[in-house]
Design a protein around this nucleic acid. Structure first.
Lengths: 247, 247
DNA sequence: AAGGCGAATTGATCTGGGTCAAATCTTTGT
DNA sequence: ACAAAGATTTGACCCAGATCAATTCGCCTT
């Protein structure tokens, strides 16, 4: 997944709503497909919202009325069973778009979306957004691109869940987060924070809390990574880490 | 995933190329988005091709020049490592579309696509198809719908691979195939053929050949399914099977 | 109809990661 | 700064599914 910042975009002062012009994901999100004039339409139907850590945006099975851009923070996309088993099927970072299958027979949300850090959203009502999709082909094209990227990522994760060892899973996860955090200026090559606790990591890579912990310890003992507290990771040699991540 | 046959489509005799008018997936594939006049453009750039079982359409890492519709037969989409581990990340049935991430930086195919039964394809050169996508918004819209469905399926499979037991995986797989085969008239509620051998099933649901075999034996002994030979399944009570498939 | 061969089943044993249980660390609230 | 609560780590043991090793089945071929 690539978040190419669209620097070539012409900044038309005044024509663009203030909160869009100053938005952290103005160009890297779906909005990057829209000109200053066009984004006025989108802005007119949008509203902002902030969720605290642990708050839920939609619950699996609920009727889903809204789409949204993530402006700040990280959310998890998950599916659970009654007996307590839970699988995190995706993470949402700044500039990611929330909007499940849209022409599915049912409008029910297939997943629960929950904030794992404080989360800022820019929310669009479903109807209005779909009208804009029809009006601006570039917007729909960008949505298609994004969906294809997510499909590819989901399939990569299928490889992880189906065929990788515990060690490879943890290494792959850390690399994945490093990539994401770097793209959003939340830490560089050297150090960054894990947005998830051990329980969520486990639910994302198909292991238990204990196994995740043991594997992180292994990586530390092998000198592949270093840690400050349980959440902050230091990696001096990304390539070496990559070699532990499997295919 | 729904394959609603678009019966309402007006059959304009004569205006539509013969091979499209008689195509088995004329309405259920992406082509369903196009009128008789429009489909003439698509037909003019298309060519047909048949692959034998085991033949490869694209190899992981190769430069991918073509898109295609599956007209007949089943293919597997897979990713493998040098050390022999392999994960099947998807199956392609009649009316499914082949066309990886399109605006990815690299044009390299992320997966190998191989025929698991004799396979008929309707192939479109990449350039021409992308031009038509721009010309006909309905085509792009349908492609987006399809991609969203595949994303949802991939995530469902993440749940299977991350959290389901061997028993649940096999039951889920059989249900999935039953659904697909039914949609394409290759067997009804009662009986249908598995398009994959045990090795491919194992690579799709993250188990080994032996475990797949044992679980199928279990389901037989429990009376959930019955079999004629190793490939033909009889299921008199789909609901009972579903209750074994987990969440 | 017989025989040969790859695919599937079955059996015996092993092991990576799960489970249960007990320390330690980190946070957070006061 | 301190203590309580929660999160993480570590240890001991177990088990679902992997691995290794024979059979047996099903399907071509002649």
């Amino acid at each position: 997944m690539k978040y190419e910042a669209d620097q070539s975009f012409p900044a038309v002062a005044g024509a663009e709503p203030e909160r869009c012009a100053t938005c952290a994901v103005r160009n890297s999100s779906l909005c990057g497909a829209l000109s200053s004039n066009e984004i006025t339409d989108l802005n007119s139907i949008s509203r902002r919202k902030t969720l605290k850590t642990g708050q839920i945006f939609v619950l699996e099975g609920d009727r889903n009325k809204d789409f949204a851009n993530v402006t700040q923070g990280v959310a998890k996309l998950m599916r659970g069973s009654e007996d307590g088993r839970e699988q995190i099927v995706g993470l949402l970072f700044p500039s990611d778009f929330i909007g499940g299958p849209m022409s599915d027979a049912s409008d029910d949300a297939p997943y629960t979306i929950e904030a794992v850090t404080p989360l800022d959203l820019c929310i669009f009502p479903r109807d209005g957004f779909e009208k804009l999709l029809e009006r601006y082909p570039a917007l729909e094209r960008k949505l298609l691109d994004r969906t294809l990227s997510e499909l590819q990522l989901a399939r990569e994760w299928m490889v992880l869940l189906g065929r990788k060892t515990a060690q490879e899973r943890v290494a792959t996860f850390i690399l994945h987060v490093a990539e994401k955090m770097r793209n959003h200026g939340c830490g560089g090559h050297i150090g960054f924070d894990l947005p998830l606790g051990r329980a969520d990591i486990a639910d994302h890579i198909g292991l238990t809390i204990e196994t995740v912990s043991r594997q992180i310890t292994q990586l530390r003992k092998k000198g592949i990574i270093d840690m400050q507290g349980a959440r902050h990771i230091l990696s001096y040699d990304i390539e070496r880490l990559r070699s532990f991540a499997g295919f």
